[in-house]
């Protein structure tokens, strides 16, 4: 059953568009697709000393993807590539079934709202797509 996916936090998070759609002078631009459904995240970032100073994105995705992108937009600024990688690993571990209290990194508590996605393996890629975009942008930095 989809119970929990659309009844609370995820829907709320998806409705909060927090990032601008573009940056005036982005250092990095990437566009990543989910081949499963065609969803796409176009992402731009600015960097200083290896840390994200600004982030913009356009998300053409489902509610899960949009909600995850909004969480990322709220908390990614100021972090480095290795820190984003830790968050991504924690998110994947949570989706894989790890105890929710053990994985939530500071500042990213709202990712706990995605716990109901655990049992829908075909939707994990929806949640992780924005992070894949950000890591791709950071890896090309």
């Amino acid at each position: 059953m989809s119970g929990g996916l659309y009844e609370g936090g995820i829907k709320e998070l998806a409705s909060q568009e927090l990032a601008p759609r573009s940056l005036p002078h982005p250092d990095k631009q990437v566009s990543v697709d989910n081949p499963f459904c065609g969803d796409r995240v176009d992402l731009e970032i600015n960097l200083e000393d290896g840390r994200i100073t600004a982030l913009a994105q356009q998300v053409r995705g489902c509610m899960l993807c949009t909600a995850a992108a909004n969480v990322m937009a709220r908390s990614a600024v100021g972090l480095s590539a290795s820190e984003i990688e830790q968050v991504d690993n924690s998110l994947k571990a949570m989706l894989g079934g790890q105890d929710i209290l053990q994985w939530t990194p500071p500042g990213w508590e709202s990712l706990a709202e995605f716990e109901p996605v655990r049992r829908h393996k075909s939707r994990h890629g929806c949640v992780t797509l924005p992070f894949r975009a950000l890591l791709e942008a950071l890896s090309s930095a």
Partner: peptide, 12 residues
């Protein structure tokens, strides 16, 4: 409404 969200609810 995104198609995957619609499909997910209909699966219920």
């Amino acid at each position: 409404c995104h198609s995957h969200d619609i499909c997910q609810v209909l699966d219920d």
